[in-house]
Simulated scan of single mutants.
Amino acid sequence: MEFVCNSCDHHHRGADAPWRCPRCGGAFDLRLEVDLRRQAIETGPPNLWRYAGALPPVPPEARVSLGEPVTPLVESTWAGVPVRFKLDYLFPTGSYKDRGNAVFVSVLRAAGVSAVVEDSSGNAGASLAAYCARAGIRCTIYAPADTSPAKLVQIRAYGAEVVAVPGSRAETARAVQVAAERTYYASHNWNPIFLHAMKTLAFEMCEQLGWRAPAAVVMPCGYGSVVLGAYLGFQDLVSAGLIDRLPRLVAVQAAACAPLYAAYRAEGRAPACSGHTLAEGIACAEPVRPERILEAIRASGGEVIAVSEDEILDGLRALAAQGLYVEPTSAVVAAAMSRLAGEGRLEPGTVAVLTGSGLKATEKLVRVLTTGTQVRF
């Protein structure tokens, strides 16, 4: 397993790599030997470790698990178009972040890491805290002070310390980097181990579809781990001959904080953003790998869509009407599909990834959906 800086090509071998390149401050990519064979996968365990041949290497005895399932791929329709929903909010801690942290924390445990810090708008922190509790690793989470209370309670319940940071998500990221000077920074945004664990999202989809690629995949996008992880996974599947093409990748941002959308439209570098959004999980002003995200989207023939707060609420209600109770961050994919359907561009066979449970944001949902004493869905 080799870490390679995507800016200056500096190399580091082993899981003890610094959180960013010590030479230029750039983000590391990961070079892995990938062995994806259909027979080995189909006879493997009924969880993400069935794809161990394409994941960062972890001895079986060091694996940290909370019983992660292969998440359901549910058939549905949207504006009359056949689509599927990938229910990644059904992981043990209620979000897709378990997909990355099950592997990431396993690598850290195997490497003998005893304490970590991380910054999070809630879901990543809750997930990391849970897996660290399971692994016996001390965990401190830096979170924006206005994070949904349910997420902060969940983090503390796992025994992690919470440091509430006044201000924006970007200010939280800057605060944790000071702590990272003395404690291992288990950043799901900077560390490529998390990204490569996210490849399992693509692997599962294609296996569930009989080793076919979906027409398109619609995903929430803040720092971009879902989009980049899926892209890396689909690339691995094409290279292994298990699928014959990349699906079109559609990244969705909230219009109130949409730096990647601005960069996609202008074909320039992602600018900082301002503004508050219900989709707190993707309120990211300074993505770590903006160029890589846009390269992945363009290579797949995909696009970036920005949706308004009203569209997010409409998407939330429409998903709930189908029995899918998600947090507002996940609802951006419904808003984007409605936009695509209205333009006649929603492709049959599209998969929409639902990343976080509505139970994560109860207080926020009551506030924005209540009129008088009635919750209006």
Rank of each mutant, 00 (worst) to 15 (best):
M1Y: 01
M1P: 10
N6Y: 13
H10C: 09
A17V: 15
A17E: 07
P18A: 09
P18F: 00
C21H: 14
C21D: 14
P22D: 11
L32T: 04
R37H: 13
T43F: 08
P46H: 09
Y51V: 02
P56G: 05
P56V: 01
S65V: 09
L66R: 12
L66T: 06
G67L: 03
P72T: 04
L73D: 08
V74N: 04
E75G: 11
G80Y: 03
F91K: 14
S95Y: 10
Y96M: 12
K97L: 02
R99P: 07
N101H: 14
F104I: 01
V107S: 00
L108K: 09
L108I: 00
A110T: 01
A111V: 07
V116H: 00
E118C: 13
E118T: 14
D119N: 03
A124E: 01
A126C: 12
A135F: 04
I137C: 00
Y142L: 11
D146H: 15
D146Q: 11
A160S: 08
E161T: 15
S168C: 03
E171H: 07
V176I: 06
Q177R: 15
T183C: 12
Y185M: 00
S187F: 07
S187R: 08
N189A: 14
I193A: 03
L195F: 12
M198K: 10
K199E: 10
C206W: 03
G210W: 13
A213S: 13
P214C: 05
V217E: 00
M219G: 06
M219K: 12
L232N: 10
F234E: 07
Q235T: 15
D236E: 10
L237G: 01
L246Q: 09
L249K: 08
A251F: 05
A255M: 10
A255C: 03
P259S: 01
Y261C: 06
R265S: 06
E267M: 11
G275R: 02
H276V: 15
R289S: 00
S300R: 02
S300C: 07
S308V: 09
D310V: 10
E311Q: 15
L316M: 15
L319R: 08
L319Q: 05
A321Y: 04
Q322T: 14
G323W: 09
Y325S: 11
E327S: 07
T329E: 06
S330A: 15
V332L: 03
A335E: 05
A336T: 09
M337V: 05
G342F: 09
R345A: 12
T350L: 04
V351C: 08
L354R: 07
L354C: 08
A361Y: 13
L369D: 04
T370C: 14
